[in-house]
């Protein structure tokens, strides 16, 4: 059983068995990994709060042969983001980033830039940047770092260069096609398009180009933000293959009851 050592960000943690947890990490050296932390829910667990979501830690794991579930042997906190535990809006923004990384990355496929971007995103939320905008920007950036970069230079359906449509023009965004679509494809295809004003389009292109370190310099409000939030939400749903838990989880509709009793 080889020992893996890496820095990690805890994405999700769920109860398992009597006192254990199954934890999903995004690690710097090995990408997304899942591990079982024995006894993590016990009072005197050696893991403490290191396995709580949105905590960065130095992680030791034992790789189990023929099993994607590793065994967590040690986790020492490296960086915490206390504000994310004290504000529901910040918490929801961080949860969306974590859920997106879970949805768009493969197990054991290292991508240090995704790790750095996620870490930067959590820091930005913790530092008090506009949570809605930060969540939007880092979702765009995370999509851009994977194979799911929203296409803005070429038609996402036929590949035609979108520059010929002219600078400063509005665009039609197709979540199904994965980006902007040209006039000809808009007429040919039957799917629903989202209208992006020139300002929204320029903002999206800028967000994809900028490095995570300076992403928070971008500011947007009103129409730009609303159009891009709708477009990115639709695109994330297509990419993930399901609706991710909503950012506005407080308004979520009731799901299945936890207990199946007669009354």
């Amino acid at each position: 059983m080889p020992l893996l050592k890496t820095t990690a960000i805890t994405l999700k943690s769920r109860k398992w068995g009597e006192a254990d947890r199954i934890v999903t990490f995004y690690t710097l050296r090995f990408g997304k990994l899942r591990g079982v932390a024995r006894g993590a829910r016990r009072m005197k667990s050696r893991f403490g709060s290191a396995l709580e979501p949105f905590v960065s830690c130095d992680l030791n794991l034992f790789e189990k042969p023929n099993d994607t579930l590793h065994r967590v042997s040690q986790a020492d906190i490296k960086e915490t983001f206390p504000a994310l535990r004290e504000d529901l809006v910040l918490m929801a923004g961080a949860a969306r980033m974590a859920n997106l990384v879970i949805a768009i990355t493969a197990d054991g496929d290292p991508a240090p830039r995704i790790f750095e971007t996620l870490l930067r995103g959590l820091r930005s939320l913790n530092e008090g940047h506009d949570p809605g905008l930060t969540t939007l920007l880092f979702q765009i950036k995370l999509l851009g770092l994977t194979g799911f970069r929203p296409q803005t230079d070429h038609c996402a359906a036929c590949g035609q260069d979108m520059q010929v449509q002219g600078e400063g023009t509005a665009g039609r965004f197709s979540a199904q096609a994965g980006g902007l679509v040209c006039d000809a494809c808009t007429r040919r295809r039957s799917e629903r398009y989202l209208f992006l004003a020139p300002g929204s389009l320029a903002f999206l292109q800028q967000a994809l180009r900028m490095t995570p370190e300076v992403l928070n310099r971008l500011k947007a409000g009103g129409q730009v933000r609303s159009e891009l939030e709708t477009a990115i939400e639709a695109y994330v749903t297509v990419v993930a293959g399901k609706r991710l838990p909503p950012v506005d989880f407080l308004a979520a509709e009731a799901g299945e009851p936890a207990y199946e009793l007669k009354r």
């Binding site: 999700k12 979501p53 529901l88 918490m91 929801a92 961080a94 949860a95 969306r96 974590a98 859920n99 991710l244 838990p245 909503p246 989880f249 407080l250 308004a251 979520a252 509709e253 009731a254 799901g255 936890a258």
Partner: peptide, 10 residues
Amino acid sequence: SPLDGVGPAD
């Protein structure tokens, strides 16, 4: 749970 989308209605 913001991670699982569990809201007050649940």
